[in-house]
Write a protein that binds this DNA or RNA. Sequence first.
RNA 1: GCUCCCUUCGUCUAAUGGUUAGGACGUCAGGUUUUCAACCUGAAAACAGGGGUUCAAUUCCCCUAGGGGGUACCA
Length: 478
Amino acid sequence: MSETVITRFAPSPTGYLHIGGARTALFNWLYARAKGGRMLLRIEDTDQARSTEGAILAILDGLRWLELDWDGEPVYQLARAERHRAVAEQLLAQGNAYRCYASPEELAAMREQARADGRAPGYDGTWRDREASDAPAGTHPAIRFKAPREGETVIEDQVQGRVVVANKDIDDLVILRSDGSPTYNLSVVVDDHDMGITHVIRGDDHLTNAARQAQIYRALGWDTPIFAHVPLIHGPDGAKLSKRHGALGVEAYRAMGYLPAALRNYLVRLGWSHGDDEIMSMDDVVRWFDLDAIGRSAARFDFAKLENLNGHYLRGTADAELVRSLQALVPELPDGAELGRRIDAEGWRQLERAMPGLKERAKTLVELLDNAAFLFAKRPLELDEQAAKLLDPAARQTLAELLPGLEAVEPWSPEALEACVRDFAEATGRKLGKVAQPLRAALTGRSASPGIFDVLDVLGREESLARIRDQALSIESA
RNA sequence: GCUCCCUUCGUCUAAUGGUUAGGACGUCAGGUUUUCAACCUGAAAACAGGGGUUCAAUUCCCCUAGGGGGUACCA
């Protein structure tokens, strides 16, 4: 009997959706899709001190941007606290848990002592067998899980393989705080069980939790889900890619001009592989994805490769769609407001017309937009250093000589323009580059741009000639 | 400290008990070209170290080193 696969992505809303979380979500999504199952979303907001509404929104937004959809409504863990509490009480009634009256000070002292003795700094089980009558008056106890002390707990992990933890190394964890709120390890078990989760795919920072959780499953008489602990993603320097060490939320990648398709492709190859395949559609990946092809070692995040992939996807995206992406991106840019004002409807149309030449030359949407700056520039153009160097007296002379021919070009099409410029170069014994580069500098203010005949075409006759005159004329006045 | 996991070119990775250890990104050198990209060709570049097991280990086992995770009344 084959059971429907149900995975879940369970972020805690204490920050944005970071890149590791995004990959975890992607893997869960892929596995569910690959097996014809479902992926559920659970917001683990039980840490009320750190969870924020804004973070929840940022995470949902990040998932939507990555086009990772989930099935059904998100489950909010906090809303299920009553159920978690009931399970804790059940564990207590069954004798699988006990009340612990130790104060925070006592616990701290206990940890310190254990450390000094070279032992694992876990709870020592003081209240495991003490009578309730010993309880100090007026204190609210926490409830601790009575973890087995003998033997070992085995996790048959789909990625990590067989992981064995000695039970003596697992202490009695608190499942219900003294204020009556459930803790993570209890909530996860109850929720995963109640939601019918069949496969838990998450970062391997949860690997040791899995052993604790397995013990709780057992005490409750529930089947454990299948675990798959995916290695973490490290920064370019090999250090942990944590929120504190410059890890970025997916919205930062969006703002840097990356395409969701490129990020997904990059992320899926971080830890998972299918032979020598690098560029894969999500349809391909869904067809091929499985847990056994996930590697066991951590990967470093490499922007260079992401950029390369992004360039690939950029080139493969339709012009009109790129314009829409750009329109959505502009407000998120640092100078977005100013830029948004400068580009009018006509500007967007021009941008789309210039897109074939632009998308060939950019690795990100941000770079693309920067390369398109000449479209929105106002005369007289500001020349960058190299363009200024290019427009030496000889070049300005060339432009002056070229001008009459260009003025007569009819129609103003790339083909006709190219014929005109080539004829001019040939007739005057110049190499094409000697004409094209000054033109480029005059028209775009830079030394690099899309094909120069396309630039002339997109800019139009009037604006092109005016920009050329701006530069050619200066020699006559000089 | 205790405990768990990991280790193939700079990076992401493939493969195999016997291979010239493959691909991709990046780098370098050419080609193409109106610039820059793209594209094409080529090059340099890896089995962490030490022990075993075996006719034979990059591959299996052990140790060491290095890296990472966990070690909360956080998730």
